[in-house]
Simulated scan of single mutants.
Amino acid sequence: MNIQKAKPEDHICLTEITKKSKAYWGYSEEQIEKWSNNLTITIEYIQNNDVFNLVEESKIIGYYSYLKQENNQIKLDNLFLLPKYIGKGFGVFLMNDFLQRMRNEKYEKIILDSEPNAEQFYQKIGFKKIGEFETSIKNRFMPIMEMNL
């Protein structure tokens, strides 16, 4: 198992992982389709951002991506795994790689908008909830979280 920089041609695989991972939390196919634009990873996204794949036996099983922001801050934009790998330590493996990369690059703060079902995962890693916003689904709120490095 290793982490590799994503290539533009990975975009279809990463989109599939994103949609399957999101559906893991019980969202209907109809809801996933409504979110399709937000869950699609494009060639341009990979070319213009930092995207890293988790690879096991030459197969991409998950990935993370981040966006550089002002004030020495990073936004974790995506962290997704194929459903059969959720809850088995692979997410922690991805997060540890991401956090080490951010420390090596001397960033001071990480922010993210968490899937509500993943909030506890991020809290266990050390993120704190600093706010929330309502999503397109009534009474569903996305936690805004941060971690100081």
Rank of each mutant, 00 (worst) to 15 (best):
Leu99Lys: 09
Gln120His: 13
Leu94Ala: 08
Glu108Tyr: 05
Ile111Asn: 07
Glu115Arg: 10
Ala118Asn: 05
Ile125His: 06
Leu112Trp: 06
Ile125Gly: 08
Ile130Phe: 05
Glu119Ala: 14
Val92Ile: 11
Phe127Gly: 14
Ala118Gln: 02
Tyr107Pro: 06
Lys109His: 06
Leu94Asp: 08
Gln100Trp: 05
Asp113Ile: 00
Leu99Glu: 10
Arg103His: 09
Glu115His: 14
Gln100Ile: 10
Tyr107Glu: 01
Asn96Ile: 01
Val92Gly: 12
Glu119Lys: 15
Leu99Pro: 07
Leu112Arg: 03
Phe127Thr: 14
Gln120Pro: 00
Phe98Ser: 08
Met102Ala: 13
Asp113Ser: 15
Leu99Asn: 02
Ala118Pro: 05
Val92His: 07
Phe93Thr: 12
Ile110Phe: 04
Phe98Lys: 10
Gln120Arg: 12
Ser114Cys: 08
Val92Tyr: 04
Phe127Leu: 11
Lys109Gly: 00
Gly126Phe: 06
Phe98Thr: 03
Gln120Val: 15
Asp97Trp: 02
Ile125Val: 13
Lys128Arg: 09
Asp113Tyr: 10
Ile111Leu: 12
Gln123Ala: 11
Glu119Asn: 12
Glu115Ser: 08
Lys129Val: 15
Ile125Arg: 04
Gly126Glu: 07
Met95Cys: 06
Asp97Asn: 14
Phe121Met: 05
Val92Arg: 12
Leu112Asp: 12
Phe121Gly: 10
Lys129Ser: 11
Ile130Leu: 04
Ile125Met: 06
Ile111Glu: 11
Lys124His: 07
Met95Phe: 02
Lys124Pro: 03
Glu115Thr: 11
Asn104Glu: 15
Ala118Trp: 06
Leu94Pro: 12
Pro116His: 05
Pro116Asn: 10
Gln100Val: 07
Asp113Gly: 12
Asp97Phe: 10
Arg103Thr: 07
Leu112His: 06
Lys106Ile: 04
Tyr107Arg: 02
Gln123Tyr: 11
Leu94Tyr: 07
Val92Pro: 01
Gly91Ser: 09
Phe121Trp: 06
Pro116Val: 04
Lys109Phe: 06
Asp113Cys: 08
Gly91Leu: 07
Glu108Phe: 05
Asn104Gln: 15
Pro116Lys: 07
Glu105Gly: 02
Arg103Gln: 13
Tyr122Gln: 04
Ala118Ser: 14
